[in-house]
Structures are given as C-alpha cells and as structure tokens.
C-alpha cells in the first residue's frame, strides 16, 4: 500500500535526522528555530517533525476538534499542491517549536482563507453560499470549509473521476438522510453501481455556491430547477422538474402518494407470497405423503 510505503519513506527521513532530533528534544524548554537546529530549510524543515511516522497517531485539539499533525510527504508531493511551500497556506507560521495554542490560527487560515489567495473567484462563490454564510456570516454554525471537501494535503483534482466518485460521501458527513434518498433514486442507484456520468449532489445543488431551495438564486429553487434539470435533460419542463429526488417511499410523511403505492405493493406481495408459500408447501406435503413423486414419473 502507498500509505505503508510512505511510512517507510518517513522512517528513512527520520533516521537521517536522528542527530538533529535528539538535539531538539533535549532543548524543548528553550525553543530553537527549525533551521538552526536541523540545518534544513523550507518544507524539509516541516517534514522533519510532521513527516515522522510516530506523529501519525498524534492529534492536537483545535477549536474542540482533533486535528492530525502528521502529513504524508509522498502524498503531499504527488498532489496538485505538491510544489507549494507549507507556509503558502500556513500563513503566519513562526519558525520554532510550537504549541497547540499558536497553531490554531494558522491551521484555520490554511483550511479556509489561504485558498482565497489563489482561488479568489471560487472563494467568493463559497463565501456567498449557505456554507460560507455559516462560517463568515452572523448566523454561526458548523459548516464545511474548503479543506473539508478538498482534502488539505492530498488534494484530489476536482475534475477527476476519483473526486466525483467521492462527492456523495463528502456531503453525507452532514447530510446522511439526503444521501440515503439520493442513493435510492434513479441517479443514485446508477451512481452507486459505478455510472460515472449520472448526476451527483453537486450537479443539482452546485459545488461552491450551494444555497437552500428557498433562495431564488439557488440551483434547486423553483426559478432555476427546470434549467438545472435541462443541463442533462434538454427539453425538461416544470412537470419533469417536479420529480422528487429526495423522497423516501417507506415514509408517509415524505410523500403520501408515493408511500401509498409502496404500502399497497408490500401488502399485495405479502398476500401473494404467503398464499403461494402455503399452497406450494401443502401440495408438496400431499405429494410426498401419497407417494406421488415416485408413481407419477413420466418421459
């Protein structure tokens, strides 16, 4: 596995830096800069500690959430952002050994606002979205930031098939009920069984500028729904857009009409199968009892 290979690589790096590390550990009370102690600069300095294998299971508390402090260097270097310096995103980093308190500020910067520096257009869309509003607006709440969907150190190209195939699970971390109803819909069944072309969450709801249906600008608002469907189904009308993706046939509260047909069929199936089972079982019983299976063989 790549993870294991990367771990081996990290171990090698550790061996190479053993001397310097011993020095750093010995001088824990008097912080020294990474550069001076280890004789290395740039990303190498960061990975001297954060690339170590024994960092893998260590987390720190950032704003109540456990944050990994291990970064898999092989995956990072191979990622889209591999060429960037760690400090490009971890803005405000001061060299030296650092505690959890000072880390918090640049972790949040790195997960969110640092993206604005290069992806201003996308970031502006996100900022105006429902999720962005929860983060930046007055109404505070838990919402995903950039790095929650675009994994920080192992960023997957958003246009890739791998990223597309992971979208459902990204959204499901906060919207599990919507995932369930989606996966039971036409698109969801096909997606689940490997259809790469079928619609996923972001095709209808948007990626960065997700807005609730009540907002007229939303892709799934009454005003835009027909156009949203028409992206893939040219000629879609209002009736077509009236199809409900997120409906649970097993719940009368979800849609009474759909549930009614579901309930009727379950009853019909139960009656037919029960009758069929009883009739079949009795027929076989009588056949065995009367020895009909032996007598009535024919060519």
């Amino acid at each position: 596995m790549t993870r294991r290979r990367a771990a081996a690589l990290a171990a090698l790096l550790t061996v190479a830096a053993l001397l310097g590390l011993a020095a750093a550990a010995g001088a824990a009370t008097a912080p020294v800069t990474a550069q001076s102690a280890l004789g290395v600069t740039g990303n190498d300095a960061c990975f001297h500690c954060h690339g170590q294998q024994d960092m893998q299971n260590r987390t720190i508390d950032v704003g109540g959430e456990q944050q990994d402090i291990f970064v898999d260097r092989a995956l990072y270097d191979a990622s889209r952002h591999g060429g960037l310096a760690c400090t490009s995103c971890h803005i405000g980093f001061k060299p030296g050994l650092h505690g959890a308190d000072e880390t918090q500020a640049w972790l949040i910067t790195a997960k969110l606002t640092a993206c604005d520096n290069c992806h201003a257009d996308v970031f502006a869309m996100y900022r105006g979205s429902f999720h962005g509003n929860l983060v930046f607006g007055e109404s505070s709440g838990k919402a995903p930031v950039c790095a929650d969907c675009h994994v920080a150190h192992n960023i997957t190209p958003p246009g890739s098939a791998a990223f597309r195939a992971s979208i459902d699970s990204l959204c499901a971390r906060c919207h599990p009920d919507q995932l369930k109803t989606y996966l039971d819909s036409y698109h969801g069944k096909a997606f689940f069984l490997g259809d790469a072309k079928t619609a996923v969450c972001t095709d209808c709801h948007g990626g960065h500028k997700i807005l609730p249906p009540s907002n007229p600008e939303s892709m799934v608002s009454k005003h835009n729904l027909v156009a949203t469907c028409a992206q893939c189904h040219p000629g879609a009308n209002e009736n077509f857009a009236g199809f409900m993706v997120h409906v649970d046939p097993q719940s009368p509260r979800s849609s009474f009409a759909v549930w009614t047909f579901y309930a009727l069929y379950i009853m019909l199936i139960a009656v037919v199968f029960t009758f069929g089972f009883v009739h079949t079982a009795l027929y076989i019983y009588r056949g065995i009892k009367d020895g009909l299976y032996r007598r009535n063989r024919h060519g």
């Binding site: 009736n239 759909v258 019909l268 069929g276």
Partner: peptide, 30 residues
C-alpha cells in the same frame, strides 16, 4: 412529463420495482 406531473416518475419507480419482485416471486418460486 409533457402531460404527467413529476411525482408520477417517483410512483413509477416504486411500482416498477415492487411489481418486478412480485412477478419474480410468482414466476421463479410459487
């Protein structure tokens, strides 16, 4: 959907799927 409302597509899936199970039970087993 030129004529029928969209909910008919939801109902169609429920009917198609359960009618299939019913038919399969009748043909394949009972």
């Amino acid at each position: 959907t030129k004529v029928l409302p969209g909910i008919f597509l939801n109902i169609a899936l429920v009917i198609h799927s359960n009618e299939a199970l019913l038919a399969m039970g009748v043909i394949f087993i009972f």
